[in-house]
């Protein structure tokens, strides 16, 4: 048995023990679905970052950085972190205020419409399944490469772990195991990236070496490597901007992100958490970026770029650090899988079954069957982690993001408008993704499914709302949402929360200075 397999098994046992301990304390539906709405800031920050950082960061994003898209990837990453600030202030607080168990339930309550709730449920479950599939394939690929065990068996083993944690301990267990896993992969990435750069001769030496690579011209230029994704720098930057919007939407409105807000102990926790989450995600992307770029010093022609950090763990880093990093990467995948699965179960029980009794049992049964279906899909289809992951993000941006914000900010939007917008965005994004693939053509970056999906959503929402009238129930539901609860009016809490939000401006300054010192100055030298 190799050392990596031992590390993975130990981590699996720890997660299972934590799942059992927490599961025994889960008594009510409130505990199971929303962790009793008592989660402190640490658990919200840990769980949101862990849900965001799936194997996609360590496999997908690392490959893009390694292949020469440093600048477009940093544009994407920094654009997306803003989604946490907007998501918390303009959507998450209201979600918690509505006291619902699922986001489709929120839409149904806000618009007094079962049709809107059903559509949101269907799109939500499709998004989750798409994401769960991507994560399962990522976990299977990673585990198989590092342990030598068959890919399908790896998927089965990891599935047993995350299905058990989720079914047994619900949202409460997911929040805690997510936070443990977040600590593990964050610590591992900080140490690993420092050692990768140090062993490569320091960051300045890395920059000097990689900028002279003949096979990756412009790897650190403002437009990235023009021989990789698009043949022009402008197009590469445009790609970063488009996917920046996609992932910003995911961070703002993605169900596996915004659902955490329903579990926070109060609205101040939601707002304050967003600052730490934004900083944490920026830092993790930056560390992944500099570590992956630095790997070009060791080998610039690695045949499978998506496994470059696995290669680093096994060949470059000291064994113990490699074991911790790989266990951390696996933890990132499992933490995302637990979140997706718990949301699928919650939606099946609360939005489809909708009974008053035995909802936890229904939720557990649906989690079990969905995980079996996704496992079969993951085993029978070739791994396409990044493609599937980006497709899931596109559905969120096109179908949900405009609806989430319109439901809070717009007085004129109606249930018909929301329904038409969601549907048009969803179908538009599917067609723009599937038809070009079927015809074997590639569309220009400005006709990306996200752009078309969001545009169709907004147009359909506008037309649908213009042709119908806002009902008194919809007016009342929105006004109720906009009233700040008495429990949130403590002047001291408000003062501190406002200070946190002002610190976002400081975060912008920190990001600019970091980019100047890490990127601009070294490449100008």
């Amino acid at each position: 048995m190799n050392i990596y397999l031992i590390g993975i098994f130990i981590s699996f046992i720890i997660y299972l023990i934590v799942g059992v301990v927490i599961g025994r304390k889960v008594k009510t539906a409130n505990d199971f679905y929303v962790a009793g709405r008592r989660a402190p800031m640490l658990l919200i920050v840990g769980s949101m970052i862990a849900s965001y950082v799936s194997t996609g960061l360590f496999l997908g994003d690392a490959a893009e950085f390694y292949n020469g898209l440093f600048s477009p990837m940093m544009i994407l990453s920094i654009m997306q972190v803003v989604g946490y600030i907007y998501g918390a202030i303009f959507f998450g607080r209201y979600l918690r205020r509505s006291e619902v168990y699922t986001i489709p339930e929120f839409f149904g309550k806000r618009f007094h419409s079962e049709a809107v709730r059903k559509l949101a449920t269907i799109t939500s479950i499709i998004m989750m399944i798409v994401y769960l599939l991507s994560v399962m394939q990522g976990i299977g690929t990673l585990m198989s490469v590092i342990t030598g065990i068959d890919y399908k068996l790896c998927i089965l083993l990891s599935l047993i772990v995350f299905v058990f944690i989720t079914m047994f301990s619900g949202a409460k267990g997911v929040l805690i195991t997510d936070t443990i896993m977040f600590s593990l992969f964050t610590g591992a990435l900080v140490i690993a990236s420092f050692l990768i750069i140090k062993n490569a001769g320091g960051w300045n030496h890395v920059v000097e070496t990689v900028t002279q690579l003949a096979d990756k011209p412009g790897i650190l230029d403002w437009g990235g490597n023009t021989e990789y994704l698009y043949p022009s720098k402008v197009m590469n930057v445009f790609w970063g901007l488009i996917y920046g919007v996609v992932w910003m939407s995911v961070c703002m409105a993605g169900p596996w992100q915004s659902s955490r807000y329903m579990m926070a102990k109060n609205e101040h926790t939601i707002i304050r958490s967003s600052l730490y989450i934004a900083f944490g995600v920026f830092l993790l992307e930056l560390l992944t970026g500099v570590a992956s770029v630095s790997m070009n010093v060791y080998t610039s022609t690695y045949a499978e770029p998506s496994k470059i950090l696995i290669y680093a763990s096994m060949e470059v880093l000291p064994t113990i650090v490699g074991v911790i990093l790989l266990t951390g990467v696996l933890a990132a995948g499992i933490s995302s899988a637990t979140t997706f699965l718990s949301l699928i179960g919650s939606s099946c029980a609360n939005d489809i079954y909708k009974g008053k009794r035995n909802t936890i049992t229904i939720s557990r049964i649906s989690m079990f069957f969905v995980s079996i279906i996704v496992m079969i899909l993951a085993m029978t289809n070739p791994p396409q982690i990044r493609v599937i992951l980006y497709f899931g993000g596109t559905i969120v941006a096109a179908s949900w993001m405009p609806a989430c914000f319109a439901s809070i900010l717009s007085k004129r939007v109606t249930k018909t408008g929301i329904f038409c917008g969601m549907l048009a965005g969803f179908i538009g994004c599917f067609i723009m993704k599937l038809v070009p693939d079927a015809l074997g053509i590639s569309l220009p970056v400005y006709l990306d499914p996200t752009v078309v999906g969001i545009a169709l959503n907004l147009i359909a929402m506008f037309i649908g709302s213009a042709l119908t009238k806002v009902t008194p129930e919809e007016v009342e539901a929105r006004q109720k949402l906009l009233v700040v609860p008495e429990s949130e009016k403590n002047p001291h809490d408000i003062k501190i929360t406002k200070r946190y939000v002002r610190c976002t401006v400081l975060l912008g300054l920190i990001i600019t200075l970091t980019m100047i010192f890490v990127w601009v100055i070294p490449i100008w030298r």
């Binding site: 600030i85 403002w222 906009l482 700040v484 009016k489 975060l507 990001i511």
Partner: peptide, 30 residues
């Protein structure tokens, strides 16, 4: 160009803080 991108990204984040702050102030000071 690299400098412009770095500054723009910082401003993008700062803008979120300003808009968020204005929205919160409006709601809390009602």
């Amino acid at each position: 160009m690299e400098l412009i991108i770095s500054i723009s990204l910082g401003l993008w984040v700062a803008l979120a803080g300003i808009l968020g702050y204005l929205h919160l102030r409006k709601e809390y000071d009602k």
